[in-house]
Amino acid sequence: MKKRLGLLFLSISLIFLFVACSEESPTNEPAYIAKASDFEDSGFTSRSNQLIVVIGNELMISAYYGHSKEKSSIDKILELENVKSGVRFEKLYQNVQVKTKGDVYYITADDGVSLEFKKIGERIIVDEEGMEYYTQEYSKE
């Protein structure tokens, strides 16, 4: 009797083991895939009306610098450019490169511009400081 119970227990345990092993394991695929083309056309705008867009070989940053409590990665660029508070800033940076890996964008351009964003929604990205940016355009790819 003990042998049968042991064999039954072993059989049930093996069945559960096989079921657990055969289930699909969760992948580490990000929910949203970053594409360089996401920055083309309308680009992305933050709640603070900071715009970042790729136009051909140039990166355009347009922003109002107001020394708000909520800092963005673009604010750091404005500080490096010595933009005064209350002044509208707009500049085209040459030789832009947008590289992606999974859900992350890596953007570089002349004058030492280096930015990183993560795609968190179909039309939403977030910078390294936690500032969210939105686009009106859906990805064409």
Rank of each mutant, 00 (worst) to 15 (best):
G6T: 02
G6W: 12
F9A: 15
S13I: 04
S13M: 13
L14A: 09
F16G: 07
F16C: 14
L17P: 00
F18A: 11
V19I: 15
V19K: 10
C21N: 13
E23D: 01
E24H: 10
P26L: 11
E29M: 14
P30K: 02
Y32R: 06
I33S: 10
K35H: 12
K35E: 07
S37W: 01
F39W: 14
F39P: 10
E40K: 14
D41I: 15
D41M: 12
D41V: 14
S42N: 13
S42G: 06
S46T: 15
S46C: 14
S46F: 08
R47N: 14
L51F: 11
L51N: 13
V53L: 07
V53M: 09
G56Y: 00
N57P: 08
L59M: 09
L59Y: 10
L59D: 10
I61M: 04
I61S: 10
S62G: 05
Y64I: 09
Y65F: 13
Y65M: 05
G66F: 09
G66C: 08
H67M: 11
K69A: 12
E70N: 13
K71H: 00
I77A: 07
I77T: 07
E79T: 09
E79R: 14
E79K: 14
L80W: 01
L80D: 01
N82W: 02
V83F: 11
S85V: 14
G86D: 00
L92C: 02
L92G: 07
L92M: 13
L92V: 00
L92A: 12
Q94R: 12
Q94L: 10
N95V: 03
V96R: 12
V98C: 13
K99N: 14
T100L: 11
G102C: 05
D103F: 03
Y105T: 02
I107F: 06
I107H: 10
A109L: 04
D110R: 06
G112C: 03
S114C: 03
S114W: 03
S114I: 06
S114M: 10
S114V: 02
L115F: 08
L115S: 03
K119H: 03
K119Q: 02
E122M: 07
I124G: 00
I125F: 02
G130A: 01
M131D: 03
E132C: 12
Y133E: 00
S139Y: 05
K140S: 10
E141I: 06
E141F: 11
